[in-house]
Design a protein around this nucleic acid. Structure first.
Lengths: 198, 198
DNA sequence: AAACTTATGTGACAATTGCAACAGTTCTTT
DNA sequence: AAAGAACTGTTGCAATTGTCACATAAGTTT
């Protein structure tokens, strides 16, 4: 299924499903519900966050337009995760049970395609996180972002605080490492814009 | 789809698909092929490995009976990954294109169910890897393994070398940390058997 | 059974990273 | 526009982790 087909499909969903709206800062009550729901974002951004013992919020990941998220595939044994809107958000709730039992194979194929994209993304993230030091984590992350944008110059789509959480490192150590990489001429940094050399 | 249904389904696959056999140490040529193939393991174990610049082999993950693997959802931009059999292996090759275009919805549902299981697993792994220090990584890993076995006492299913790779840490540092955790009475360790306290 | 390879275990030392504290900046809300 | 909150940037220091080197144990192959 190509991107265009996917968009056509989303148009079809738009006809058949109700839109739900959320304000910035609101929670998406997926972990609270018993239903096997999958959220598809029509517009806006949703972050997956974790609250740790001290009440600090840890950024895990985020989802944006045309991406799906669901508690179905999130590991939340400690019950400390939640989805929060970081912008105003419009989304659809799709019922997984209907997906899988329904007769419309299009829905299934679409969802499967999305799942595969997401698995690839998770593998990318693991590739980054399995690196043994921060420099390699950062450079791998930058390479992936750079490829995604098809350009050596790109914007970091999150705050540096969130990037530190994402990489599982300390924020101030991250800043120090960024300076170091700049001194070693491996990157150039202007605010959130990174230029990756070589 | 319950485990039993999944097993029934695998029996059906067994009827319709050819089995391929591999010796221990052999590569599964998925990255070499152009086909969109998904391997389903009938018996044996397959590891996903990475060869780094120095020619060292890094363990990424492994797959076992009734689990699927495919290059479709693996990030292999640097072309340094491969699947290798760590035991004698029998498996089926399923064609993703047929899956998605075919009329047999059972296949689709089965594959989707497997995909969701795998996404959950990847999220678990990310939960471990995003921890900021080795102690938390280890204890989270142990908790997950313990839950999976339904027992505070469980076997580590890989070598300590592989576990270090998996967690993205140095092997000798891992050994040191294990001793430390034992001294702090957080675990008890006998060879590959771990007893998780509290 | 011997030779060989791979895994486990330990220690000294260097390098990296986390932590805490603080100042300046930017973004949000009132 | 002012106040408040959150983010960015920097530093010293302590704690953690990686590297290297080597010894022993376990597993594999011949």
């Amino acid at each position: 299924m190509k991107d265009k087909e996917a968009e056509m499909f989303i148009l079809e969903i738009e006809k058949n499903f109700e839109t739900f709206s959320f304000n910035k800062g609101e929670f998406i009550p997926l972990f609270q519900s018993n239903k096997k729901e999958i959220a598809l974002i029509k517009s806006g951004k949703v972050s997956l966050m974790k609250s740790d013992i001290n009440g600090n919020l840890l950024y895990i990941d985020h989802f944006k337009k045309n991406e799906m998220f669901s508690k179905l595939w999130i590991y939340n044994e400690e019950n400390d995760l939640f989805f929060v809107c970081t912008t105003p958000v419009e989304l659809y709730f799709l019922d997984y049970t209907l997906f899988i039992q329904g007769t419309n194979q299009k829905y299934l194929s679409f969802f499967l395609e999305k799942s595969i994209q997401y698995m690839t993304y998770l593998h990318q993230k693991i590739t980054i996180l399995q690196k043994k030091n921060m420099e390699e984590k950062l450079l791998t992350y930058f390479r992936i972002e750079s490829e995604k944008n098809g350009n050596k110059r790109f914007e970091i789509p999150v705050t540096y605080k969130e990037l530190a959480d994402y990489l599982g490192v300390d924020r101030s150590s991250l800043m120090r490492k960024l300076n170091e990489l700049e001194q070693k001429k491996k990157i150039k940094k202007q605010g959130k814009t990174i230029f990756l050399k070589n």
